[in-house]
């Protein structure tokens, strides 16, 4: 897994609407990348739904939250609609898992990312990472706020 202090690898992926999104588009703002295994798995649904409920509080701290999985944009669109999410979801679809690999979040033997959170600062440097012990374990939203609160204290 990538570590705090390292430059965040740039990427360009398509979102749920087929639009190209690059990490560099967000330079000057903080970004929270939420790597998750798969759309529609019950555990992922809970994770993104709970984060959605505190999205206003995350955004109030100047952070843009972005979900990434190996699913296609079409699956992302349906997943977004099913869960009532307005969090942007990026398709790490082809080459499969390339971005997750660049961040060290990919699990080869299962073919998808582990549940990992990466907070990137305004200059594009990784500020904080959290990797779940297993994909079944959801990182609580409290951890995001802990990271943001210590980053503001610096």
């Amino acid at each position: 897994m990538i570590a705090a202090g390292q430059p965040a690898p740039d990427f360009t992926l398509r979102n749920q609407d087929g639009e190209k999104v690059s990490l560099s588009d967000f330079r000057g703002k903080k970004v929270l990348l939420v790597f998750y295994p798969l759309d529609f798995s019950p555990v992922c649904s809970d994770q993104l739904s709970v984060y959605q409920e505190v999205k206003p509080e995350i955004e109030a701290k100047g952070v843009t939250m972005i979900g990434i999985s190996v699913d296609s944009g079409f699956a992302h669109k349906a997943f977004q609609e099913k869960l009532g999410l307005d969090t942007q979801l990026l398709a790490d679809f082809e080459p499969k898992g390339e971005v997750a690999r660049a961040y060290g979040a990919y699990i080869e033997k299962v073919g998808h990312a582990n549940r990992s959170l990466v907070l990137i600062d305004e200059e594009g440097t990784v500020e904080w990472v959290h990797e779940s012990p297993t994909p079944l374990e959801i990182p609580g939203a409290n951890l995001i706020f802990d990271a943001l609160s210590s980053s503001q204290a610096h």
Binding site: D46, V50, E53, I138
Partner: peptide
């Protein structure tokens, strides 16, 4: 209540 749950790490 919801916020106390978030702070305690409730995710489901």
């Amino acid at each position: 209540d919801f916020e106390s749950g978030i702070r305690a790490g409730v995710t489901g």
